[in-house]
Design a protein around this nucleic acid. Structure first.
Length: 260
DNA sequence: ACTAACCTGGTC
DNA sequence: GACCAGGTTAGT
């Protein structure tokens, strides 16, 4: 489930439930989470107040009143689930925020790959991330400069969070289709007009997904143009959509519209 | 620059 | 039973 639009919605859920609240206890129900947050660190969270919830790329941050930061990353399958007091959580619930002054909030993550990490006040959380796709300071020359440092093909380069934070496997393919760019071209081969088209395409597909009320919950959602559509006709030219693997990830594209 | 690893669950 | 999955990182 989680690519950037889903993480943005999830961040809003976390904010609504946790911002301004005091943590009574963070319960970790999976060994992989306990490995990253030792019991001693976990204990220091009792009584901590969450003053601000933010998102950077696919990462959620809960900033604590004492200056520390809890970083939550869903990775492949996470989602928040509000629990009613006393409700017994599903087997796929890997962590539960118990609040002193609000109902509990559970991290439901079937694959158990999500991470929760705690960062000291003077330690900036986690890896260097590139600009957000919607950052007004991000323009074609900036994108070109980031891509110029890469030797790999365009599509895997877009998955590097240092280029643009938040672009995942689905929207990398979707953006390249919309911009009519060949995913296999060297990342450094883009012309400025192409970088501009790519930037606009990324902003369009992300905004469309974020505005789609059916995308996060179950039910109808805007159909994707290429992702998971191998063999189906291209919505522009009817050519069958192709699938290949780049850097171990599926790439979907139209061999005709996206030929270089 | 690719592969394995981290994990579980759904689908063929 | 085998293969696939929206992410990231460590190792080769």
């Amino acid at each position: 489930m989680p690519e950037l639009p889903e993480v943005e919605i999830a961040t809003r859920i976390l904010r609504a439930h946790a911002e301004g609240r005091t943590i009574a206890r963070l319960e970790l129900r999976h060994a992989s989470l306990r490995r990253r947050l030792a019991p001693s660190a976990l204990r220091t969270l009792a009584g901590a107040r969450i003053v601000h919830v933010a998102r950077r790329g696919k990462q959620m941050y809960a900033h604590l009143a004492d200056g520390r930061t809890l970083a939550i990353h869903f990775r492949m399958t996470g989602d928040w689930r509000a629990l009613t007091a006393g409700e017994s959580p599903a087997a796929t619930v890997r962590a539960i925020f118990h609040f002193a002054d609000a109902p509990p909030l559970a991290l439901d993550d079937s694959r158990a790959l999500a991470t929760i990490t705690l960062h000291a006040a003077d330690t900036p959380p986690l890896p260097a991330l590139g600009p957000e796709a919607d950052d007004p300071a991000l323009d074609a020359p900036t994108l070109l400069a980031a891509l110029a440092t890469k030797r790999m093909a365009l599509k895997p380069a877009l998955l590097d969070q240092r280029v643009i934070a938040g672009i995942g496997n689905i929207y990398a393919s979707e953006s390249l289709w919309r911009a009519k760019l060949d995913p296999f071209r060297p990342a450094r081969s883009l012309a400025r007009a192409e970088a501009n088209a790519l930037l606009r395409a990324m902003r369009f597909v992300l905004a469309r997904a974020l505005g789609d009320p059916g995308r996060y919950a179950t039910g109808d959602s805007t159909p994707l143009d290429v992702y998971d559509r191998e063999g189906a006709p291209c919505r522009r030219c009817r050519t069958p959509i192709a699938r290949d693997v780049q850097s171990g990830r599926s790439t979907y594209w139209c061999p005709r519209c996206q030929a270089s």
